[in-house]
C-alpha cells in the first residue's frame, strides 16, 4: 500500500508557499514597478539569486542561518517554539525563499504591461494605491497573477535539493513527494517510485495545461 502522506505534504507546502508568496510578491512587485527609489537593481538581484544559484549552495547557507546556535536560528526557534531545521516550518521558509523570484517576476511582468493612461484615469478619480491595485491593476493583470500562482505552486512541488538539505527525509513531517521518490529508488522500490512520479507528472501537466488555457483565453480577448 502506498503512503500518500508525501503527496499530501507536497500539496500542503505548495499551497502555503503560493498563498504567502502571493501577498509578499504583490507588495514587492508593486514597489519595483510603480514606485521610484534608489538601488532597485540590488533588490531585484537579491530576489533573483535563487533562480541562478545551485540549490545546494542556497541550502548550505540556510543550514548555517537556521542553525539553532546562530543569531537568526535562535530567534526563529523562539518565535516558532520549535527548531527550524528538519521541520515543516523549515522547509516552508526555504520554499518561500526558493520560489519568491518566480512569483515576483510573473507579477512584475503583468504590472509592467499595465497602461499608464489607465493609472492616470484612476488617479484623477481620486483612488488610492490599494484600491487601484485591487480593483484595476490585478483584474487587468489576472493572467500574469494566475500564471505566477500556478508556476510558484508547480515550482514548489518540483523542489528537491534545497528542501532535502533543510528538511531531511522525516516521514510524515518533511518527506515530500519528490524526496519520497528518491527514497524509494534508493530502496529499489521502483513500483512505488513510479506511482509517486505518475502523480507528480499528472499534477504538473494539469497545472501547466490550465495556465496555458487561461493565457490563450486572455490572448483571444
Amino acid at each position: 500500500m502506498i503512503d500518500l502522506m508525501p503527496i499530501f505534504l507536497s500539496l500542503k507546502l505548495a499551497m502555503l508557499t503560493t498563498l504567502i508568496l502571493f501577498g509578499v510578491g504583490l507588495v514587492i512587485a508593486y514597489c519595483l514597478v510603480f514606485l521610484s527609489f534608489k538601488n532597485k537593481e540590488i533588490i531585484e538581484t537579491i530576489i533573483n539569486i535563487p533562480i541562478i544559484l545551485p540549490p545546494s549552495v542556497l541550502g548550505f547557507y540556510l543550514l548555517f542561518i537556521f542553525n539553532p546556535d546562530s543569531l537568526i536560528g535562535s530567534f526563529l526557534t523562539k518565535v516558532f517554539h520549535s527548531r527550524i531545521l528538519f521541520s515543516f516550518t523549515g522547509i516552508l521558509i526555504a520554499s518561500l525563499i526558493f520560489s519568491l523570484p518566480i512569483m515576483v517576476n510573473f507579477l512584475k511582468a503583468g504590472f509592467k504591461s499595465f497602461p499608464q493612461n489607465l493609472l492616470d484615469a484612476a488617479k484623477i478619480m481620486g483612488k488610492g494605491r490599494i484600491e487601484i491595485l485591487l480593483r484595476v491593476i490585478l483584474p487587468y493583470c489576472r493572467a500574469s497573477v494566475i500564471s505566477g500562482m500556478i508556476m510558484t505552486f508547480a515550482h514548489t512541488i518540483g523542489a528537491f535539493g534545497i528542501l532535502m538539505m533543510i528538511g531531511g527525509n522525516i516521514p510524515g513531517q518533511t518527506q515530500l513527494a519528490s524526496i519520497a521518490i528518491f527514497n524509494e529508488i534508493e530502496c529499489l522500490n521502483y513500483s512505488k517510485a513510479h506511482v509517486y512520479s505518475i502523480i507528480l507528472t499528472a499534477v504538473t501537466f494539469l497545472l501547466l495545461f490550465v495556465m496555458l488555457k487561461i493565457n490563450r483565453k486572455k490572448e483571444a480577448c
Binding site: 497602461p115 489607465l118 492616470d120 484615469a121 484612476a122 484623477i124 478619480m125 481620486g126 484595476v136 487587468y140
Partner: peptide, 20 residues
C-alpha cells in the same frame, strides 16, 4: 494640488475605460 482635488474631467484618446 493632487489630480483628484483639481475637479476636472480628462478624456483620453485611447478611451481608458477599465476593461474589467
Amino acid at each position: 494640488l493632487p489630480a483628484d482635488r483639481r475637479n476636472l474631467g480628462f478624456v483620453f484618446q485611447e478611451y481608458n475605460l477599465f476593461p474589467n
